[in-house]
Simulated assay, not measured.
Amino acid sequence: MANSQAPLPLIEYDAFLFDLDGTLLDTADDLGAALNAVLINNKIEPVSSDVYRPAASNGAGALLEAGFKELWDTQPQSELIKQLVDEYAANIANHTHCFSGVESLLIALDQKKIKWGIMTNKPGFLTDPLVAAIPALKNASVVISGDTLAEAKPSPLPLLYCAKLMGVQPKRCLYIGDAQRDIQAGKAAGMRTATALWGYIPSIDEANSWNADFNWQSPIDGFNHI
């Protein structure tokens, strides 16, 4: 669903680029399981998905803060982050799967000979085994992680690097993500942007305020742009 602004002229995209967690993949339950393992190990009550899911795109610190709540500021944060990351890395794809409609969109892009790739702020040592564990992602033209370059999103540099590797102009790329930093990075890179409203957004109203070029209710909305 597009924003309520004037319709954008239709263009032919040479490439789609996607965020990973909360856009292509529903990773929340594996992240939540890692969080709960750390909480239990520290004699804190585990939390339900309605607590960890909104924090799933925001990194280990945000997840732990959601779990420890008001106790977080007094905790050995670096040590707990390492515990969570180690737990997650050991169980990285037990429950993770593509969101409904993602695989159909990727197949359609392949059939149309439109390149697609992944740019995530997840570090490479987690990104690479996760992507390898999901067969639907095997045809990605590029997979760029948050530590591939010296800067991560909201910097536009990783997205510009993706476009360079794929041999396409940024203005002919569409970047899809579920966080404000995704939209900021895409716009700064000169790409069109789409918010994945099915992802780990804080609220529909807040996601609309990011002023993406498009707000997609489902990955199937991507079919309108290929």
Rank of each mutant, 00 (worst) to 15 (best):
E79L: 13
D178H: 04
K171Y: 11
A93D: 12
Q217I: 12
V85D: 06
D50V: 13
T195M: 00
V85M: 06
N58S: 06
S48W: 11
H225Y: 10
V85T: 05
E87M: 09
M1D: 14
A89G: 13
S104N: 15
P9E: 14
I92K: 02
Y52T: 08
S4W: 13
N211H: 13
G186R: 07
L17E: 10
Q184H: 03
L130C: 06
Q217F: 06
A66G: 09
D182Q: 02
V102S: 04
V131W: 05
L25W: 09
M191F: 03
D14F: 01
N139K: 14
A185K: 07
I118W: 04
T96H: 05
A207T: 11
V51M: 00
Q75F: 08
A90T: 08
D26W: 05
I81L: 02
Q184G: 00
V142L: 14
S104V: 15
L160A: 10
M191R: 03
L39R: 05
I201K: 00
S57G: 11
V47M: 04
S141A: 15
I204S: 08
A185V: 11
I144W: 13
L8S: 08
I134D: 09
K69N: 13
H97P: 15
P154S: 01
L109V: 12
N211I: 12
I44P: 06
N208G: 02
W116F: 03
